[in-house]
Design a protein around this nucleic acid. Structure first.
Length: 484
RNA sequence: GGCCCGAUGGUCAAGCGGUUAAGACACGGCCCUUUCACGGCUGUAACCCGGGUUCGAUUCCCGGUCGGGUCACCA
């Protein structure tokens, strides 16, 4: 049998990291077994509709490479794939359940229901619906219907016995049927609830594996009862533990946690994000950590899914992002970095490709670029304390004499290439009989004005060019001379 | 509060009755080195508690603690 999974987000306007991980696992479960991955938009909550929100979903799937085989934008055999366009369906199924005695009309007002709830002291008997409308006669129901009294349709739960379902990650879960509330299937506005629509749609779309967050674990017995009531085969359930911000809170956009697009904007690579979240709740059979999407498709198994929640660790994502950057082809990296480089460096005579090359192996996120390359554009104000470096065995005095010695040597260079600069400076080190660092550290410092820079003295000198390099060394010399 | 689920270093995580309890991130140290970084080496650090079962429990069972989820005409 062909595996079919679905991603069924409701359009909220951004892609939550937890949702993206769910989509990833759904995709991987299907693709690791040559199955189909379906996109269905769940927009039955008319009060929460957000303009343009479905585009965010399409874009994210496209960017991440989670290509769906069926969906609203590409069609498929089991459409429509937008719940609001399937409105005609649900009422008929609800009525079928009424005929089977598994559901019933309820005319109770919201006021009555809420007073029912408040009459329950909290901690007292649970606030189940009291089945006020269950005993209505056919005539009464018809009268109410004719009178246009708003109604909902409720699922009729068994009052005794237990219901057990199997979940692939959590195992068998059993609940007492008397714990189950007669949940609403059809709302007064004629729309189905999620609880009803997802069962009907999953069945109609021949979904074999229902993958979703563990918050649905407690309502799954009701869904199972629904499948039974219809005489349908229940799907394989795969519930996923939550992605947390810390030990106590789920990751949530509303509380300031980053969405997928936030991370992208902050300079994280899509591939790195996908790789990282794959590892957040799943682990491969070996110790591999770097996975492309297609490698994940091969390596993924449901057994690797864990059942305890995991905390989203931006530090590890950052590390992984750095790994991805380092592993890129230099040309590809340049394309990625170009915009940010151009924004940070106005001086068009500088060779941005050379700078990118230096940057690539010491960058963790793209957003680090501006602060790392600022000094190329303009020598920052700096303190001469920078010239003191214990490991390089430099003092201000040594720095001054080194810079003074380096200046004429560099001035006399007719060819300004990294090799030429390197040879000249190393020769000078020999002549002066000092340590490499005692010459190179001062030069590097004078050229950058920064405690750290994406490259050493020779690389910086090469990129800055002869004129600018000499200028900066002169500035260094006068700064140091003014100290005395 | 009822019900459901979970618990291995700070974090992600292997582990499926017998292990010196992996690995990665982060952190510390060392080496390399013209800084930082990269790379290499290395260190600190964990089985929630109490009872069973067993020759033997991190692993199985029960209880507790802690944490999460759920109890909507939201999904």
């Amino acid at each position: 049998m062909e595996i079919r999974t679905r991603f069924a987000p409701s359009p909220t306007g951004y892609m939550h990291i937890g949702n993206l991980r769910t989509a990833l696992y759904e995709y991987l479960i299907a693709k690791s077994q040559n199955g189909k991955f379906i996109l269905r938009i769940e927009d039955t909550d008319q009060e929460r509709l957000v303009e343009g929100a479905t585009d965010v979903i399409y874009n994210t799937l496209k960017m991440t490479g989670l290509k769906h085989d069926e969906g609203p934008d590409i069609g498929g055999e089991y459409g429509p794939y937008i719940q609001s366009e399937r409105m005609g369906l649900y009422m008929d199924y609800a009525k079928e359940l009424i005929e089977k005695g598994q559901a019933y009309y309820c005319f109770c007002s919201k006021e009555r229901l809420s007073s029912l709830k408040s009459s329950n002291e909290k901690g007292d008997a649970f606030a189940k619906y009291d089945r006020h409308c269950l005993g209505l006669s056919t005539e009464q129901i018809q009268q109410n219907l004719d009178a246009g009294i708003p109604f909902v349709i409720r699922q009729k739960m068994p009052t005794e016995g237990t219901t057990t379902f199997h979940d692939v990650v959590y195992g068998d879960i059993t609940v007492e049927n008397e714990e189950l509330d007669d949940q609403i299937l059809m709302k007064a506005d004629g729309y189905p609830t999620y609880n009803f629509a997802n069962v009907v749609d999953d069945h109609l779309m021949k979904i074999t594996h229902v993958v979703r967050g563990s918050e649905y674990l407690s309502s799954t017995p009701k869904y199972n009862l629904l499948y039974e009531a219809f005489g349908w085969e229940a799907p394989v359930y795969v519930h996923l533990p939550a992605v947390m911000r810390d030990a106590h809170n789920k990751l949530s956009k509303r509380h300031g946690d980053k969405s997928f697009e936030d991370l992208v904007n902050e300079g994280y690579l899509v591939e790195a994000i996908v790789n990282y979240i794959a590892l957040l709740g799943w682990s491969p059979s070996d110790n591999t950590e770097i996975f492309s999407l297609s490698e994940l498709e091969k390596a993924f198994t449901i057994e690797g899914l864990s059942k305890s929640p995991s905390i989203f660790d931006i530090k590890k994502l950052t590390w992984l992002n750095g790994e991805y950057i380092k592993n890129m082809k230099p040309d590809d990296f340049y394309i990625l970095a170009e915009n940010r480089l151009k924004k940070a460096i106005k001086n068009t005579s500088l060779d941005l490709k050379k700078i990118a090359l230096l940057l690539q192996k010491r960058l963790e996120t793209l957003n680090d670029i501006p602060t790392l390359v600022d000094f190329f554009d303009k020598l920052p104000e700096y303190s001469t304390e920078l010239y003191i470096h214990k490991k390089m065995k430099t003092t201000k005095e040594i720095a001054l004499s080194s810079l003074k010695a380096a200046l004429p040597v560099l001035e006399n260079l007719s060819v300004w290439t990294e090799t030429a600069i390197h040879d000249a400076l190393m020769e000078l080190v020999q002549t002066l009989e000092i340590k490499n660092g005692q010459l190179l550290w001062p030069v590097r410092t004078a050229l950058s004005g920064e405690p750290t820079s994406p490259g050493g003295a020779m690389e910086l000198a090469d990129i800055l060019g002869k004129q600018e390099s000499l200028n900066r060394i002169k500035i260094g010399i006068s700064k140091l001379e003014n100290e005395n």
